[in-house]
């Protein structure tokens, strides 16, 4: 049930990301949903979702290398880190991890761009999309948390804001 629910959420998120892409906007919806799912359901599920849906978004975007997949894996690991060290309530406080998670898909491209010396791409395309991604992530993650937690509560599924409670001090479990 939980996997079907998240599969539908991810497919909707990928559709939104592709729609925004057709209008020239890089909206990092998939990586934010991975962050949410990894926090709510655990690191193991987060990694599995990253591999499946990261590859899907990479193929749809036409990349020759799975950049987005690695960004999603990074978001899943960051979710584990954030869950163990920070507060998850209220939803509004999550603008900061939203910014970090949203920046990951573009940060993975940065080393390759700098090495290739393509400064035109860096200044014309990468930087504006990066700034937009930070703002979008800061706004989207709290909204996503509030919305999906509301739905999860009705469906009796794990919530993002309750994830910290399920984590005992020194807990090394990968999944719940």
């Amino acid at each position: 049930m939980i996997d079907i629910y998240f599969a539908l959420i991810f497919l909707t998120g990928i559709l939104l990301q592709l729609l925004a892409g057709n209008f020239g906007l890089f909206l990092p919806v998939t990586v934010l949903l991975i962050f949410y799912a990894a926090t709510a359901t655990g690191l193991f599920r987060g990694i599995v979702y990253s591999l499946i849906f990261g590859i899907i978004i990479d193929v749809f975007s036409g990349w020759g290398f799975p950049w987005h997949t690695f960004a999603c894996l990074g978001a899943a690991l960051f979710a584990r880190f954030w869950c163990a060290r920070q507060m998850l309530r209220p939803a509004l406080i999550n603008f900061f991890p939203g910014m970090i998670a949203a920046s990951l898909p573009l940060l993975v491209l940065l080393p390759q761009t700098i090495i290739s010396g393509d400064w035109r791409f860096l200044l014309d395309t990468w930087l504006p999309q990066f700034v937009f991604g930070l703002i979008a992530g800061a706004i989207l993650l709290p909204v996503t948390v509030a919305l999906l937690d509301h739905i999860s509560e009705r469906l009796k599924l794990p919530r993002y804001q309750d994830a910290r409670k399920q984590l005992e001090p020194g807990d090394n479990k990968w999944h719940r």
């Binding site: 892409g21 057709n22 906007l25 749809f60 036409g62 990349w63 395309t125 999309q129």
Partner: peptide, 15 residues
């Protein structure tokens, strides 16, 4: 018409 376009490869490639 264009089906998909990647904002990071806006001028380089499309579907």
């Amino acid at each position: 018409t264009i089906l998909r376009r990647n904002p990071l490869e806006w001028r380089e490639r499309f579907i």
